[in-house]
Design a protein around this nucleic acid. Structure first.
Length: 879
DNA sequence: CGATCCCGCCACATT
DNA sequence: AATGTGGCGGGATCG
């Protein structure tokens, strides 16, 4: 039998499949060259026995050229087919004659040889697990398919799964970028976190009894929350958006399914997941409709995914014997603990990481939101590397927009949060008082941003720009809008700020978003950096003693105004200078642990405060100490420094300007700065809306005092539980300050100050930053320096290539820090697609009004996310 | 005979 | 319309 097959196969197989292994058989060259041809040549040529043989011969002869081209594949295939059909018998004969049997045998083997798992191994063998960050390997689907001798369809199966884990990201049509496993641990960590939220409960329950549980599972799932809710959230949050993105069902599939599947493992105590349970869980749709067919299909897909994961060494097939009997299952054999970020050996991770791109980019999706990964995504994007990728993707087609499912998911989560926030906000507004200790502070009249905090609580409070934020529901709009929205917009068209900015605090938040109407650009700049910082920050946090944090926090508290001012001022200045300038963000990373932390919110605040420090720390991996010092340093000095730095901004402004252009065009885009805190949950991400900022900033700028930045803080991933603290913007909203005014308002002085100080830090850009620092006279040059230094090194690494960054960074005084890694994922713009969602997290670019900003940005291209823009910008701008 | 899962049709998305 | 993607499930193979 084999023989026959062989004979037939031989021709075929060689051609298509068997690249390597088979190829060995006879002299065929393996993959690279058109396998088939080679073989044919080898053997067949000599003997043209059958007609088929002749054909083969011809083909082979011709093949060289053909092969070179992709076309050859097609040709060959057909030929093969024809041969088979045509001359089965002859082939057989041939077989005999040739004695090629051996070869055939090898090839023939059949199915197994063609298995997706094997194919995936071959695929993976082509690329280094830990590629140098510097070089990016691009993968051409056509090329790979030809080399491996398979149809492109199969490659998609592999790539989709790899993409879900951020091992690759799509750059353009037919082109993927290989990232390797550098980010794998982070990705897994993110998934684990996400998984806890979504499936934690379920898994826990089920693990014990899968059988019974199984259905429960299903039920619970539904009930619980998980997916269904997400959707719902999504739906309401932005049906439009989603739809816009295209609801294509495609979005969901393999990639998402793959991530979810992995989540199940990560959440599972036993690390063993049976296919049927997984299938049930993954059949999101609420309906239990367990259509058998549907279930069957799901299982099929799971096998596809499992094969790839197996090839990656993340899972292995096992059998679970339960009452019912033996059930196929898979056991997770990959890493279980994800230490901070480093899972991977290479530290540079941040840069390299891609995001993930996730993904899709980039945004991955995941990416996205709160989770570390997401953050990382953003980071990545910010960072050179990823950004590039991202951009590319978008450019190509990828457009995240449409679909990056993961993002969507995350988004959905985010949305949920937002919804919650909204509610809270509403409540808060009414109640006025903040619930949490943190409290959100209310913004005072101005509101706008005010984040601050004044005395107390600095922490948590954040103002969000509502509008932009787009809280999911109308929160922002409603609450905030009233007052200012219009005004703010006026300036650039953007929404200026937010008139009302409510604050939202989420206890656990990991993110802060600041929106400044002014310049989105600035924000953007910042944003990018964040990612890196974030990662580091995490480390830093770890390193940094809590005490430091406390100190910092205390300082802030103590002299909130000052610090705040400093920070803000800086930001403002920048803005003022450029108009956009935005500010810096700091990411806090530190955890709540700090004693001070008040309640959650507090912690958040603290974290925020710390952030600056952190940043420093982060920034300067080298000198964590510095961070401490900074923290210790008098706020004032720091502030001054910052200011000075800020001043520098003029330069930065250039960069900003560039940015601004983009942003400027887009009126609405909110810009946020994203800061990610450390990986740790605690950390927050800050987003500043650029729009608002302006006003606030500007005002403040001159002064240090307050910035008003609207911020939204969201708890990190965990979310689910968190309580939000929100202060409704309320306070301010009304306040009347017209656009600009808000800033004035009370605002917030966010403790940012400290952050502000940090301003020097640069996020995105990396190294560049450093230099600038000095410029300003500022009082304490010293510190500033730190930041820069830190960053740069780090960034540099991470970013490596990134060109973009530098420019950006340099330009602005602002800084972004990325703290850590990826941990939380700030969303990058990408991620956010959906409108509201977008608003929420999105970076300026990403969402904003899609429309609006698109228009504005025209050049950026449709999809390009803010990140991309940045990248572009940065790259463009010299320094 | 159930578990796997290859293969490739075909719909949808992008160009 | 052509081409890229990738959902999907028939049905072949494996064990």
């Amino acid at each position: 039998e084999n023989i026959f097959d062989r004979s037939r196969m031989a021709p075929k197989t060689p051609i298509k499949n068997e690249p390597v292994d088979l190829s060995k058989q006879k002299g065929c060259t393996p993959e690279r060259n058109p396998i088939t041809p080679v073989k044919l040549v080898d053997r067949p040529q000599p003997d043209p026995w059958t007609p088929t043989a002749n054909l083969k011969m011809l083909v082979s002869a011709a093949s060289p050229d053909m092969r070179d081209r992709e076309k050859k594949k097609e040709l060959f295939r057909p030929i093969e087919n024809s041969e088979q059909s045509d001359t089965p018998d002859s082939l057989q004969y041939d077989m005999v004659d040739d004695s090629t049997i051996d070869e055939f045998e090898k090839q023939r083997p059949s199915r197994k040889q063609k298995s997706l798992g094997l194919l995936c191994q071959k695929f993976l063998a082509r690329y280094p697990s830990y590629p140098l960050s510097t070089e990016k390997t691009t993968i051409s689907l056509d090329e790979v398919a030809s080399v491996l001798g398979v149809e492109r369809r199969r490659i998609y199966d592999i790539v989709n799964v790899l993409e879900s884990l951020h091992l690759v990201s799509r750059v353009a049509k037919n082109q993927y970028c290989w990232h390797g496993r550098h980010n794998l641990s982070q990705t897994l960590k993110t998934l684990q976190e996400a998984g806890e939220l979504q499936y934690g409960e379920l898994m826990t329950f089920f693990q014990h009894k899968e059988q019974d549980l199984e259905y429960k599972f299903g039920e619970r799932k539904k009930e619980t929350i998980p997916d269904s809710q997400d959707r719902s959230l999504l739906d309401f949050s932005e049906p439009d958006c989603t739809s816009a993105s295209a609801n294509s069902r495609k979005d969901k599939s393999l990639r998402i399914m793959s991530q979810k599947f992995v989540m199940l493992f990560l959440v599972s105590k036993t690390k063993i997941v049976t296919l049927d349970i997984a299938a049930k869980i993954l059949i999101e749709e609420t309906q239990d409709t367990v259509d058998h067919s549907k279930f069957k299909t799901k299982v099929r897909r799971l096998y596809d995914i499992a094969n790839v994961l197996t090839s990656l060494g993340l899972i292995k097939k096992v059998h679970v014997t339960e009452e019912r009997g033996r059930k196929p299952a898979f056991k997770w054999i990959g890493p279980v603990e994800f230490p901070g970020k480093t899972g991977e050996p290479r530290g540079h991770s941040p840069t390299s990481d891609p995001l993930p791109g996730t993904q899709r980019g980039t945004c991955a999706p995941i990416q996205i939101c709160a989770t570390g990964k997401q953050r990382f995504t953003r980071h990545a994007s910010f960072n050179c590397a990823q950004p590039c990728e991202v951009t590319r993707r978008k450019v190509s087609s990828e457009p995240n927009s449409p679909h990056q499912e993961r993002q969507d998911e995350y988004c959905s989560k985010m949305i949920n949060l937002a919804a919650v926030c909204r509610q809270k906000i509403e409540e808060d507004t009414r109640s006025a008082s903040v619930t949490s200790p943190l409290s959100l502070l209310p913004v005072t009249g101005d509101s706008d941003f005010c984040v601050n905090p004044l005395p107390q609580p600095v922490f948590p409070v954040v103002q969000a720009d509502v509008p932009r934020l787009s809280l999911p529901n109308g929160v922002s709009s409603q609450a905030l809008h009233p007052s200012t929205p219009a005004a703010s917009k006026t300036e650039n068209g953007k929404p200026a700020l937010l008139p009302n900015q409510p604050f939202l605090c989420f206890p656990s938040s990991s993110l802060f978003m600041l929106c400044g109407s002014l310049q989105e650009n600035n924000l953007r700049e910042n944003m990018p950096t964040t990612g890196d910082t974030g990662n580091r920050s995490a480390e830093a946090q770890a390193a940094v003693p809590p005490a430091a944090c406390q100190k910092r926090s205390s300082h802030k508290y103590a002299s909130p105004s000052t610090p705040v001012d400093d920070e803000e001022p800086a930001a403002k200045k920048q803005t003022m200078e450029q108009s956009d300038v935005p500010l810096s963000l700091v990411v806090p990373k530190k955890p709540f642990e700090s004693p001070k932390a008040e309640s959650t919110p507090g912690s958040g605040c603290t974290s925020a405060v710390h952030l600056e420090n952190f940043h420093l720390d982060l920034t300067s991996p080298v000198a964590p100490q510095a961070a401490d010092e900074e923290s210790t340093k008098p706020l004032d000095s720091q502030e001054q420094e910052k200011r000075s730095q800020n001043k520098d901004p003029g330069e930065p402004s250039l960069g900003k300007n560039h940015i601004c252009k983009e942003n400027g065009n887009q009126p609405f885009l909110p810009q946020y700065l994203y800061v990610q805190p450390t990986a740790g949950l605690n950390s927050f991400n800050f987003l500043f809306s650029a729009n608002q900022a302006p006003g606030a900033i500007s005002l403040a700028a001159s002064q240090l005092p307050s910035l008003s930045v609207p911020c939204v803080m969201v708890p990190s991933a965990a979310l689910a539980s968190f309580p939000l603290v929100c202060s409704p913007t309320i306070t301010s909203p009304l306040s009347p300050v017209p656009d600009g005014s808000f800033s004035a308002a009370t605002s917030t002085n966010f403790s940012m100050s400290s952050l502000a100080s940090t301003a020097p830090v640069f996020i995105g850009t990396t190294a560049v930053v450093t230099p600038k620092v000095s410029p300003v006279p500022s009082v304490d040059p010293q510190q500033p320096a730190h930041p820069t230094l830190h960053l740069s090194p780090v960034l540099a690494r991470s970013c490596g290539a990134v060109k973009l960054d530098s420019p950006m960074c340099m330009g602005h005084p602002v800084t972004l820090l990325k703290l850590q890694q990826p941990s939380s994922a700030p969303l990058t713009p990408k991620s956010i697609r959906p409108a509201r969602h977008e608003a929420f997290f999105k970076t300026p670019g990403s969402l904003g009004d899609p429309v609006a900003w698109k228009k504005n940005e025209g050049y950026q291209t449709r999809n390009a996310s803010s990140v991309q823009r940045r990248l572009e910008i940065s790259s463009t701008s010299p320094d």
